[in-house]
Amino acid sequence: MRVRRLDHVLLAMPPGREADAREFYQDILGIPEAQKPAELAERGGCWFEDGELKVHLGVEKNFAPARKAHPAFIVDDLAGLSSVLTAAGYAIAHDKPLEGYDRIFVDDPFGNRIELMEIKPS
């Protein structure tokens, strides 16, 4: 017995902010929204999925953003995405270099830390 793969990442969000989630995850990051199963839809939140990339946002009543724990997404054109994020009012943060990657950090609309990584050409 062993773990085979990651099915999805679940991040928390405050109630009633689904439009903000759609703007960030779908419109800026380009991950299409997926329909939640009917039995879960009443809870609020949003799911964003593109093939094996699955980011689910669930409503948490006493929400507190994840500041250290975070997903790291591999992206194409990190410089272009950084420009789009900055133009949309999101602050970009840098950390120590990581061999083989260019990377930045950005907070989603709720303050959850998100790492965006582009693989450096060999």
Rank of each mutant, 00 (worst) to 15 (best):
D27M: 06
I28A: 03
I28V: 11
L29Q: 01
L29E: 01
G30W: 02
I31K: 00
I31T: 01
E33K: 03
A34F: 04
A34P: 00
A34N: 07
A34W: 02
Q35M: 12
Q35R: 09
Q35N: 11
K36F: 08
K36I: 06
K36W: 06
P37C: 10
P37N: 07
A38W: 04
A38P: 07
E39W: 03
L40R: 10
L40F: 11
A41C: 05
E42A: 14
R43Q: 11
R43T: 04
R43S: 06
R43M: 11
G44L: 04
G44P: 07
G45C: 04
G45V: 01
C46H: 00
W47A: 02
W47H: 01
W47D: 00
W47S: 00
F48K: 00
E49Q: 12
E49P: 00
E49R: 07
D50A: 08
D50M: 03
D50E: 11
D50G: 01
G51L: 03
G51S: 07
G51V: 02
G51N: 07
E52D: 13
E52G: 09
E52V: 05
E52R: 09
E52C: 07
L53F: 13
K54I: 12
V55W: 00
V55A: 03
H56W: 03
H56I: 07
L57D: 01
L57P: 02
L57Y: 07
L57R: 03
L57W: 01
V59I: 14
E60M: 12
E60F: 04
K61E: 15
K61H: 14
K61A: 15
K61T: 15
K61R: 14
F63E: 09
F63T: 05
F63D: 09
F63S: 08
F63Q: 09
F63A: 11
F63W: 08
F63C: 10
F63M: 12
A64N: 13
A64G: 13
A64D: 14
A64M: 15
A66W: 05
R67L: 15
R67V: 15
K68A: 15
K68E: 15
K68G: 12
A69K: 09
A69Q: 12
H70L: 07
H70M: 08
P71N: 12
A72E: 06
A72M: 07
F73Q: 00
I74W: 08
I74M: 15
I74C: 12
I74L: 15
V75M: 02
V75S: 01
V75C: 06
D76M: 05
D76Y: 06
D76C: 06
D77R: 10
L78M: 08
L78I: 11
L78Q: 03
L78S: 01
L78D: 03
L78Y: 04
A79R: 14
G80W: 05
L81I: 05
S82E: 11
S83Y: 05
S83V: 11
V84Y: 05
V84T: 13
V84Q: 12
V84K: 10
T86R: 14
T86K: 13
T86I: 10
A87N: 14
A87W: 02
A88D: 10
A88E: 13
G89T: 05
G89A: 08
G89R: 05
G89P: 02
Y90M: 03
A91E: 14
